[in-house]
Design a protein around this nucleic acid. Structure first.
Lengths: 193, 193
DNA sequence: TTCATTTCTTGCCAATTGGCAAGTCTTTTT
DNA sequence: AAAAAGACTTGCCAATTGGCAAGAAATGAA
């Protein structure tokens, strides 16, 4: 089994010995997702923490009016988990779905905690992932507030091109907080320039 | 020194023995803030983790156009910290300021880590705080997206009345992603009903 | 290949929100 | 208490965005 991408990711985020890395990686299991498969469905208590080695995923939920809203996109070489459901053991309000075929490595809540308990550096890694995801979310909220639809689009395409190469426009539209109609018009404006 | 509110808060979030609670609380220091004092200024590396026992605070930053944007409000009986700066030791992009006179208890990064290291239950508490803050942020983002200005206002006033009792309207307006002009008009509409 | 379904685009019009500037009200300072 | 500064409201008009529905394009199934 080829866990180098996982090991490199951990190493890049919180350098430690090869021995420790192997010990950590040992507890992850390879997992494949077909396009449109779910990694997490709302209502479930999330029990897997995923390193996405290849492919593209998205998270979505439904707003108070029952409209589907894409809340996040996950490119490869990132960890994927719903912090609230996974760590608090509560039922998830979010869905996480493979947008393309995906491959990754998962570890259960129980095993992850066991590693956190026994390997202080890995505990730091776990905390760093949580903090990074949080910071990314705050960044996103800031990039949404007080910005016109066109600015939000321009910002996303300049910082996250890969989203446009993988996701459907209607999902990008709801992620950007606009209708697919508006997104379509904005794209047209941009292509003129 | 009166640390009961801190001890109760920890106990409510992650029950443990009185002995452990006292050991934890011992490392917190009482701190007072005058109105408009800063708990954190942008550019600093945040070194304090705060339990706000009394008063009201807000976080703010500046968007890409240089406009001040309120990013969060902290009522009392909550922990206050900027996760990214505090845990990653990076310079903060946010300011956290006392909106009213405040009283709380702080602990330094070093001491907090020491406690995390030596008290596994407290480690859980720290993680729970992080996850809760994160979940609250996600909730907020969702409540903003695809909602009209009026709906965002209605939602905030029904779930967070205390914000309206403490904060200035222009700060609430930027928090809600609208101009103070619009907020003023919306309030007028509501008062008619 | 053809048919059916889904995704994306476009036109028309209405509703929402912002920008600006003047005016009122409140709080702070002297 | 008067003056000054700050906070909030309001009127007018323009720009942005959404709603709806029809059509075009792309994708998938038979």
């Amino acid at each position: 089994m080829q866990k180098e991408s996982l090991i490199n990711f951990i190493q890049n985020n919180l350098p430690t010995s090869r021995k420790t890395l192997d010990e950590i990686a040992e507890h992850f299991e390879e997992k494949f997702f077909a396009k449109n498969d779910y990694f997490l469905k709302e209502g479930q208590i999330s029990n897997d923490y995923l390193f996405l080695a290849d492919g593209f995923m998205r998270a979505f939920t439904f707003d108070m009016d029952g409209n589907e809203v894409t809340t996040y996109f996950y490119p490869k070489n990132r960890v994927v988990f719903e912090a609230s459901s996974f760590f608090m053991r509560t039922s998830s309000t979010e869905n996480i779905q493979a947008v393309t075929e995906c491959k990754g490595f998962t570890i259960t809540f129980e095993k992850l905690n066991m590693l956190f308990h026994s390997i202080p550096e890995f505990r730091e890694f776990g905390r760093a992932m949580l903090v990074k995801e949080f910071a990314a979310y705050k960044q996103r909220t800031l990039a949404m507030i007080n910005k016109s639809a066109e600015e939000r689009y321009a910002n996303l395409i300049s910082t996250n091109k890969e989203i446009f190469q993988n996701a459907q426009l209607k999902h990008i539209a709801s992620f950007l907080g606009m209708t697919d109609t508006s997104l379509s018009r904005i794209r047209k404006e941009f292509s003129k320039k």
